Every structure is written in structure tokens, then in C-alpha cells.
Simulated assay, not measured.
Amino acid sequence: MSVEQRVRELAEEKIQDRADLFIVSVKVQNNKITLLLDGDNGLSIDDCAMVSRHVGFHLEEENLMSDAYNLEVSSAGLEAPLVLDRQFQKNVGRNLLIKKTDGTKIEGKLLRNEPTALVISHAVKEKGKKAQLIETTIEKEHIASAKVSISFK
């Protein structure tokens, strides 16, 4: 079993009684282990600390890393791309910036997260006319990246 698999297993073990928490990703690069978590209702520092202590304890106990390592457990954060269906569901009602695989970008409000597509409402402006809001369905397979759009207006 790889270190990455074991870290995921240990994290899942610790959050199994917390249905609102989920793992976004686990990366092991050199001697740095990065575990990104998220929650349907957000994620607290205490949640991260709880998982970090559990994973760290077992990594030491099982001697999985031969050299010194750095374990980082944190929230995926607002800047991180949305990768899981559960993240899209959590962000229904928020503005997203979506980059499609063909290079085009669309920014709009996520109305619905469907099994294979996202439905967003966004403004389209034609020459000499006032911008109109339209609904667009974007197949998930055509999404290169999607992020929550942060506005400080």
C-alpha cells in the first residue's frame, strides 16, 4: 500500500462519523504530504487538527515515512479548483468561473449540479443591446477547470 493510499484510508477512518466532511485530495511529493479536506457546511481548524493528529500518529506508529516529513492538512480553500461532484453541489447558488476544454471561459451563477452537467445563469451582451441573463448547460466532460468566483464589490 502506498503512503498516499494509507493517508487517505486513515483520514477516511477519522471522518467516518462526520458525514458532512470529505476528502478532496491526497498528494505525497518528496517528504511533504498534503491532505485537502472540505465540508458541506465548511471546515474548521479543529476538524483539520483532529484529522492531522490521527493521520500523523499512525504514520509515526507504522513508520511509513523513512525520513522526516511534513504533513499538511487543510481546507481546499476558495482559490482551489472544484473537482468533486460534492463540491459543485455545495456551491449551488454561488458564482463560478468555468474554463472549458476548448479554452472559452464562462462566469455565472451555478443554478444546478446535475449528474453529467452544470447549469449556470450568465449575462450575454449583444451589440447595442442590454445584457440578458441566459441559462447554459455545460457538460462536465467539457470543463477544464471551475473555481468559485470571488467578488469584492
Rank of each mutant, 00 (worst) to 15 (best):
L10C: 11
A11H: 05
A11T: 09
E12N: 14
E13Q: 14
K14V: 09
I15K: 11
I15S: 12
I15W: 04
Q16A: 15
Q16V: 11
D17C: 02
D17R: 10
R18V: 09
R18A: 15
R18Q: 07
R18K: 15
A19R: 15
D20V: 04
L21Q: 12
F22C: 10
V24Y: 03
S25R: 14
V26S: 10
K27V: 12
V28Y: 05
V28S: 09
V28N: 05
Q29D: 08
N30K: 15
N30P: 00
N31Y: 00
N31V: 09
N31D: 15
K32I: 08
K32M: 05
K32Y: 01
K32G: 04
I33E: 01
T34L: 08
T34R: 15
L35N: 01
L35F: 04
L36C: 08
L36P: 01
L37C: 07
L37A: 10
L37F: 08
D38C: 12
G39S: 04
D40S: 03
D40V: 07
D40L: 04
D40A: 08
G42M: 04
L43M: 08
S44A: 06
S44C: 09
S44D: 08
S44I: 06
I45W: 07
I45N: 05
I45L: 13
D46F: 03
D46M: 02
D46Y: 12
D46R: 06
D47H: 06
D47W: 07
D47V: 06
C48T: 03
C48K: 01
C48P: 02
A49H: 03
A49E: 06
R53E: 13
H54L: 00
H54A: 10
H54R: 08
V55H: 01
G56F: 03
G56N: 07
G56M: 06
G56S: 02
F57I: 02
H58Q: 14
H58E: 13
E60Y: 02
E60S: 12
E61R: 13
N63P: 05
N63D: 15
N63H: 08
L64S: 05
L64W: 02
L64I: 09
M65H: 00
S66D: 06
S66R: 15
D67Q: 10
D67Y: 06
D67C: 00
D67F: 11
Y69A: 00
N70R: 13
N70L: 14
L71G: 01
L71T: 04
L71H: 03
E72M: 02
V73D: 03
V73H: 00
S74N: 13
S75Q: 01
A76W: 09
A76Y: 10
E79T: 05
A80I: 00
A80C: 02
P81N: 05
P81L: 10
P81H: 06
P81D: 09
L82R: 10
V83N: 12
V83Y: 00
V83I: 11
V83K: 12
L84G: 14
D85R: 08
D85H: 13
D85A: 07
R86T: 14
R86P: 06
Q87I: 12
Q87Y: 03
Q87N: 02
F88L: 07
F88Q: 10
Q89E: 13
K90F: 06
K90V: 06
